[in-house]
Design a protein around this nucleic acid. Structure first.
Lengths: 232, 232
DNA sequence: CGACGTCTTGAAATGGCTCAAAGTGAGTGG
DNA sequence: CCACTCACTTTGAGCCATTTCAAGACGTCG
């Protein structure tokens, strides 16, 4: 990928958007490129945090392994999302493992280099804080859901959240444009794949969703799903 | 409070510690002071985010109201903790309401002023990112707990987390030095006060804890509590 | 001393999990 | 191109951890 197309990618990413064009071009020049095939791992939970990454295209699932061998899905990351920075800033090991769910390209910068870029360009640091703040609010919202709502509402809210982050509007409704398994949803909502499967089956029956048997999910009646996620 | 004692407070806070002494003194001079009586609210969830706060002494409970009238406790904040910054950086309303659980003093800076301080002192911005990163990791850890572990383990982990943040070592064990109700614990662990009460009763019976009837909790056998929080 | 808020405890109800088994589609290799 | 395999999904049945409902006890504060 040449500098120009990198620059144009970064200009549209939430992280660099509307910052000084010279900063963007400099960052684009200095970035290293990384490509992942489906199922590839960007880094392992527990590895020393050495780089900041921005997703150029593709999609990753951020997995966190628990001490007792279970797994939870923290979120999915798509184009423009920032990865690794939390750990780098803390000087701690990466707390999760990003796995490509489709072919994915990223740009990366070393911790030291990004530190200099930020110190020399305070708006970039402010932007990073804004993105971290967004992550905190999302996590707080999920904590609230999982702590207070029953499973059906949590599944509805989770599908809506993913649709909001990655959904594509189509003729029939809103499509989630990657393979999102029942197991993934279970690991995002703190339930079992059995319960997710039953719940989605009911919704598909009801004509609310489409996507039996591992095809991409399509939300046919988003408004109804919102109702479920908000039902008393 | 005079500038000197403010300076010394800030020098010991996780936010300013070991930064340029001139920056600390300048920040101390510019800070506004705020005192809260027990039960006072620092600001309301939903208010426009205008200030960053650092707790000088005392303790606050960070409450988040859910759309359907429930409440969850996000965390307790003590001396040195940073409050409000997440919302200020995002330009969004405060997402939660901090309530003083005892008499509390804070220092505050306007959003604009702190922005300038950070732009002129990159290490301060880095520090803020580090603290936000810590919040993200704590939230991810809690999400993992609540998503995968049963109630007893979550209660144990929550008490240990609070003890780690605020506990005081005493002759008998580790004391949590403020009134922490069964309801608070329930709202932090995503369970009911009944279940918390039953669980703590069993632990008190077992000699693991002290603190029947609203006296401060004392962990008599921390190691045993860790075992419970990690039990397969 | 009374009243209220917090806590404790029992008993019954239930949402979601575990266990179990079979169905389906996609990919693969012959 | 077909048969086979494997991973993912669906669905049923029984169970159990936790909630819900209910009642009372304790402490504290005015």
């Amino acid at each position: 990928m040449d500098t120009q197309s990198r620059t144009s990618v970064l200009s549209r990413s939430p992280f660099f958007r509307e910052l000084d064009p010279r900063l963007i071009e400099l960052s684009a020049q200095e970035a290293q490129e990384r490509k992942l095939a489906k199922q590839d791992v960007l880094f392992q939970q527990g590895d020393e945090a050495t780089h900041h990454y921005v997703v150029v295209w593709g999609r990753l699932r951020l997995d966190q392994a628990t001490p007792d061998g279970k797994n939870i899905v923290l979120r999915f990351m798509g184009p423009g999302d920032l990865l690794g920075s939390v750990a780098v800033f803390r000087g701690m090991p990466y707390p999760a493992t990003p796995v490509a769910v489709e072919e994915t390209a990223l740009l990366s910068w070393s911790a030291a280099r990004m530190m200099v870029l930020m110190q020399e360009n305070p708006p970039l640091a402010m932007r990073a804080m804004g993105m971290m703040g967004g992550r905190i609010e999302e996590l707080q919202a999920r904590l609230q859901e999982i702590a207070t709502q029953q499973v059906e509402r949590r599944i509805a809210a989770t599908i809506l959240r993913i649709a909001g982050q990655s959904g594509r509007r189509t003729a029939e409704g809103v499509e989630i444009p990657f393979a999102l398994s029942r197991q993934d949803l279970a690991e995002m909502t703190g339930t079992t794949l059995h319960t997710v499967s039953r719940t989605l089956s009911a919704w598909i029956e009801e004509g609310l969703l489409e996507g039996r048997r591992s095809s991409h999910l399509v939300i046919l009646r988003p408004h109804r799903l919102v109702e479920i996620s908000e039902q008393a």
